[in-house]
Design a protein around this nucleic acid. Structure first.
Lengths: 104, 104
DNA sequence: TTGATATATGACTTGAAGTGTATATACGCC
DNA sequence: GGCGTATATACACTTCAAGTCATATATCAA
C-alpha cells in the first residue's frame, strides 16, 4: 500500500483531517468515525502508520496518533505538474497567495 | 469510483502523465503501457472517463484521449490544507514561485 | 461486401481491501 | 494478583477491482 492508495479511502482521509487539527488518542478517532467499529479504525490507523502518514506515541494505555503531513508531498509532487492546466481563477496557488498576502 | 481512487492506480497515473504531454489515441497509450493488454488499458481509460479525468473524441476508427486536469482540483483542494505543515524548504509552493519568478 | 485495424465489452478468475465478532495484549488501578 | 480500560490482532466473510481471453462493434480500405 502506498500513499496514493492510503488516501483513497474516505475514512482514512477523515482521520488525517482530524489529526490535522491536533494529535489525538486512538479512542477519540474511533469516537469520531462512529460508523466504524474500533477494530476497523485500528486497522486504518495501522495502514496510515505503515505508509508514514501518521506516527504513534504511547501514553500509558493510550496511543496518541499524530499527523506526518510531509508524506503528503508525494501526492503534491505528482499533482503539481498539472497546475498549469487549471483555469487561472481557480488556481489554488493563487488562492493560497491571496490568503497569505503577497510574499509573506 | 471517485477521483482519489482513480489516481491511486499507478497505470492510470501513467496514462494521465502521458496525456499531460499531449492528447493521444488509445492505441498509443496501449503501446506505452506495454505491461498491460489492450483490454486492460481500455478499462482504465473507461474509469478515467467516468470520473471525468479524461475526455474522448472519435477520429475515424481511433479514439483520441485528452486530459481534463481540472478534475484534479478535487485532490488539490483536499491536500492544500496540509501545506502549512510541510517543512518550508521543501514547500512546493515556494518551489513553484521560485520557478516562475516572483509575481509573474 | 470482405477483410484488416482500432477500440470496447463480456465472462470469468484471482487477489486484496474492508468490515464485524471475538480474542489477545498492554497498562493502570485497587 | 485481579479487574477494567484502551488498543491491536486473528479469523471468517463479502465485496470489488483488476487482469486475461474471447468476442463484439465500428471504421477504413480495397
Amino acid at each position: 500500500m502506498d500513499v496514493f492508495e492510503a488516501i483513497a479511502e474516505p475514512s482514512r482521509r477523515e482521520v488525517l483531517d482530524l489529526l490535522a487539527e491536533r494529535e489525538r488518542p486512538a479512542g477519540e478517532l474511533v469516537a469520531h468515525l462512529h460508523r466504524l467499529t474500533q477494530p476497523a479504525v485500528s486497522r486504518h490507523l495501522r495502514i496510515l502508520r505503515e505508509v508514514g502518514l501518521v506516527e504513534v506515541r504511547p501514553d500509558g494505555q493510550r496511543r496518541i496518533y499524530a499527523l506526518r503531513a510531509d508524506r503528503l508531498m508525494e501526492i503534491e509532487n505528482w499533482i503539481s505538474r498539472y497546475r498549469k492546466y487549471w483555469p487561472r481563477h481557480l488556481d489554488a496557488l493563487e488562492q493560497h497567495l491571496d490568503q497569505k498576502g503577497p510574499r509573506e
